[in-house]
Amino acid sequence: MENLILEGTNKTPAVTFLAGSGSLEISGKSIPENSFGFYQPLLQWLDEYAASPSAKSEVKIILEYFNTSSSKCLLDILRKLETIKKTGKGEVAILWHYEQEDEDMMEAGQDYNSLVDLPFQLIEI
């Protein structure tokens, strides 16, 4: 399957989803007014990826800001990744990054960790 590469904008994050290596990264800002439009292709890509994923998926989330409309979409992404673990098709590790002293972003990582059954690593940058 094809990789999904999107450049970041002032309202949407950069996306680098590499199917072969299982290296998935979302970084930057995510504050679009209608997040569903932006995240739809990512969710579709993940549907296909989850069918035959890499044995190990490493998912880096490095967000500076995200709005509440994105927060819903991020949860949907994590839930799609969760199915990879549930079906036993592969391992998934979430590397949740937050800026030093950004307690809100760190807490957001903990929040997601409590909502999905995936190993989270909280990484200060």
Binding site: N34, S35, F36, G37, N67, S69, K72, D111
Partner: peptide, 14 residues
């Protein structure tokens, strides 16, 4: 967050 349906508009009242 956990229960709301994905909306094409806002963030489900979040």
């Amino acid at each position: 967050l956990g229960s709301a349906e994905l909306s094409d508009k806002g963030g489900a009242g979040l």
